[in-house]
Nucleic acid binder design. Structure first.
Lengths: 199, 199
DNA sequence: AGACAAAGTCGAACGCAGTCGAGTTTCTCA
DNA sequence: TGAGAAACTCGACTGCGTTCGACTTTGTCT
């Protein structure tokens, strides 16, 4: 009779995630209490902690799945005649639109991913895929002659990723309020890297 | 008798910061409770909240006070062949060292400042001071001829600030583990902006 | 089947950030 | 100078995340 227990556990686990996600998107992460989640899932408060180590853990588990999905959407290769600048803008705008789809979720996810309580291998793995993706973009551009030959492509990924972070912080900090503005900022900042600011 | 009250307030304020900093460095940010701080400062718990809006606000204020001094120094000397690049690195390294002097606290503060629950005018003001400071640095550099004339200096502040964020994320994400490496990254990324990456 | 262990459950309790509102001190102005 | 207003103080309270430990269910071995 292997698995009666296991099956139940899996169900409860799913129920917790489901209730949590519903409540998070309805009331926000901070406003949703563990007790709310437990009640909605039909279990006791303490039981939640046999499935998840902390509140944020529930959230991150859910996000792992979502991120996986988001990544597969992104895989389409770009055709020729496109510049690296435009490719980068497209790439990061997709990321931006995905993560800000739900303001509350995006905020929480960014907090967890960028400033985690302890280093999470899963997040690292995820980041790595994005960096690899960017690397390929840069490599192709270098072949096309759009980039100087001596560029460290990994460093370049970090550079653009940082700019993307700055833009996200601007969004969440209330400095930018429309998606159009976001795209403008992206274009301006990215162009700055290409051109250089010295004289 | 103008100021008996004011004077007392200023003293209490200082006492809170002093006690808080002592306790933070002895026990760590999270392990220090507001009650501990209040007791050490010889006041009631609730009184702390008439001086500071939250626990993190205490440390933020402390940082600002301390950094103020360091940064005015940075702005003054210019005759010797100091370059904008080095000024920027010094500026951000001071910030970095300060905010990461307590790992846990820095993490929490960054989360709160970059992806706040709700837009906080106090934080915006805080940011503004640093942007203004950078602006001055850029302006002086432009006068010296280190920057192209058509640069939008505000945009430049955003650019370097973003790079700084990326570096912080690298630190908290476990991608970089020594301060030396941090400085190298900073130098490399910043240089990239000056030179430009195109060809 | 029965009995012992292991795993799972959950209400109660803890520690802490932040708020409330009643009491106290300082200021102001007639 | 004194009385009413304004500012300040703080113990008690609320709400929440997380842990504890007593209780219940499931699995296993003879």
């Amino acid at each position: 009779m292997a698995g009666l227990r296991e099956q139940k556990k899996a169900e409860t686990r799913k129920a917790i995630i489901k209730s949590a996600v519903q409540l998070f998107s309805k009331k926000g992460f901070e406003k949703t209490s563990i007790e709310d989640i437990a009640k909605a899932a039909g279990i006791g408060k303490a039981t939640v902690y046999t499935y998840f180590s902390a509140k944020s853990d529930i959230f991150m588990t859910y996000c792992d799945d979502e991120l996986e999905e988001a990544f597969t959407d992104l895989k389409k290769p770009k055709d020729d005649g496109v510049t690296l600048l435009n490719q980068l803008i497209e790439f990061f705008m997709i990321k931006f639109n995905f993560i800000t789809q739900n303001h509350e979720f995006g905020r929480q996810l960014l907090r967890e991913m960028l400033f985690p309580k302890q280093v999470d291998e899963k997040v690292k793995e995820h980041d790595q895929r994005y960096f690899d993706f960017l690397y390929e973009l840069f490599f192709a551009a270098q072949e096309r002659g759009e980039l100087a030959d001596d560029q460290d492509l990994y460093q370049l990924s970090v550079h653009f990723f940082s700019l993307y972070l700055g833009i996200l912080a601007g969004w969440y900090g209330g400095y930018v309020d429309s998606v159009e503005e976001i795209e403008n900022w992206m274009r301006d900042l990215f162009s700055q890297v290409f051109k250089g600011i010295g004289r």
